[in-house]
């Protein structure tokens, strides 16, 4: 396999340049018991080491590679603690991806030559200040003679191979492993409860078992069923959201601005009492006497205010006193009649 680090000077010279981090990818080393040449048994594990320039620890963002018949991948990184730079002992190896499945069934082709992208948020631990990366490849199936990873590239933080904002909910590797255990646990718990066997070691660490009330045995309710029901609730809500109408009842909401307008123009108190629709039966707030409607939540919606002002202009010419009720129905009628 050729080392996929052709851009040594290119990436280092310009910090904002897009491209993989400079690194040296060593060719895979098979873990073989016995003599490599003569032994017929094929190894199931290989290791690829990636060396990074020692002076530039890498804040890893993304690992991209093309699979070539590797079934499971474990990634370990060597990190340097920022607090104690300079000491060799400060470099620690940590596992940031554990037996990640690249081929769902190792004996068949599926996934064998796919491109993979492992993002920072999919890894088990922080991958800052990385000085070396080790990829451990496993292929339990004897069907494939060779397995490796090709076109391996490491991208530093701030740079990505393709899309800039890849939604994190679409790719969750690490969490995916947990529910499986969880299913296992709940299934085990259920089966043990059903068989009348006391749940021993399986549920020891689960705090709900300590709960009084006796419902601890099942642990988590069946996620499948819960999911079905919750999804239906979601669909119902979404359906209603999709059915929203733009239609309005046309409430003549006397707005704060309108009140100010009236106050400014000096609405003659004798001419009319404008009843605010928000005060239920019109008993409350009387506009026009200089007082301001106390309903700031009824904010103006463009045309409503314009109409109101137009209406007021017409009404101001009306001689004599009168009580004007302004609200939904009448508002529309008045406008259409005048």
């Amino acid at each position: 396999m050729e080392p996929a680090a052709p851009s040594l000077g290119h990436g280092a010279g310009r910090p904002m340049a897009t491209g993989p981090a400079p690194c040296t990818v060593r060719s895979p080393v098979a873990l073989q018991v016995g003599d490599v040449k003569t032994d017929l048994a094929r190894p199931g594990v290989a290791v690829i080491d990636v060396a990074l320039p020692p002076a530039q620890p890498l804040d890893l963002q993304e690992i991209v590679f093309k699979n070539s018949y590797t079934a499971f991948l474990t990634v370990r990184v060597q990190r340097r603690r920022p607090c104690d730079v300079g000491r060799d002992s400060a470099r620690k190896w940590v596992t940031c991806l554990w037996n990640h499945c690249l081929m769902p069934s190792p004996h068949t082709e599926a996934g064998s030559q796919d491109y993979f992208s492992l993002f920072r948020h999919q890894l088990l631990c922080d991958v800052d200040q990385v000085t070396a990366v080790r990829l451990i490849l496993r292929q339990p199936s004897p069907v494939w003679l060779h397995f490796t990873l090709e076109e391996l590239r490491l991208y530093p933080r701030g740079q990505q191979s393709l899309q800039t904002d890849f939604p994190s909910w679409l790719s969750h590797l690490a969490p995916q492993q947990q529910p499986e255990n969880l299913h296992g646990v709940s299934r085990l718990l259920m089966s043990s409860a059903g068989a009348g066997v006391s749940q021993g070691a399986v549920g020891m660490s689960r705090p709900e078992l300590e709960c009084p009330g006796g419902r601890g045995q099942q642990g988590v309710p069946d996620p499948e069923k819960v999911s079905t029901e919750v999804q239906q609730l979601w669909v119902l809500t979404e359906m209603l959201r999709a059915n929203q109408t733009a239609a309005r009842i046309g409430r003549f909401d006397v707005s704060f601005q309108l009140a100010l307008f009236i106050a400014h123009r000096g609405w003659p108190p004798a001419l009319g009492l404008l009843r605010c629709p928000a005060c239920a039966e019109g008993a409350g707030c009387i506009l026009g006497t200089g007082s301001i409607c106390s309903h700031p939540e009824l904010l103006p919606a463009g045309h409503a205010v314009r109409n109101a002002i137009k209406l007021l202009g017409k009404l101001l010419r009306v001689p004599g006193p009168g009580v004007l009720e302004v609200d939904g129905c009448y508002d529309i009628n008045l406008l259409s009649y005048t």
Partner: peptide, 12 residues
């Protein structure tokens, strides 16, 4: 988000 996996995780 509402798949069995995520819900199981949240509940757990």
């Amino acid at each position: 988000k509402l798949g069995p996996d995520c819900l199981a995780l949240a509940m757990d």
